[in-house]
């Protein structure tokens, strides 16, 4: 086993964006490198928000929901390798 490669793999998560959020950000999915250990949802949001005014406004909007591995997640949740993180606006089904 090559531990260097393993740690690189471990640092990566997938981020999905849905509906109006995906359209406004111009991004439906991306692979994201966590860069360090114990990255929380709040930390991730901070890093995404640093991409620009649009990202800052939409990712930090109180109405924006975050799910980790397909369950709604709070800001405190710590992310792990290969997690699937999703950001989306309030749902409007039914």
């Amino acid at each position: 086993m090559n531990s260097d490669n393993a740690s690189e793999d471990n640092a990566s998560i997938n981020i999905l964006y849905f509906a109006s959020l995906a359209e406004s950000l111009g991004c439906e999915c991306e692979s994201f490198n966590l860069a360090c250990e114990k990255v929380s949802v709040a930390d991730l949001k901070q890093q995404l928000a640093a991409r620009g005014e649009q990202w800052q406004r939409l990712i930090n909007a109180p109405s924006t929901r975050c799910a980790v591995n397909q369950s709604l997640a709070e800001d405190e949740q710590v992310l792990a390798s290969n997690d699937e993180v999703a950001f989306f606006p309030p749902v409007t089904g039914g």
Binding site: A19, E23, S63, F88, P90, V91, T92, G93, G94
Partner: peptide, 27 residues
């Protein structure tokens, strides 16, 4: 089931180019 579905299940409606807004009454 329908009340909870409307605020929890990840569906989004788009009418033409416009994404439908969520309603406080559903929440």
């Amino acid at each position: 089931m329908i009340d909870v579905l409307k605020t929890q299940a990840p569906f989004w409606k788009k009418e033409g180019a416009h994404w439908v807004d969520a309603k406080d009454t559903d929440q």
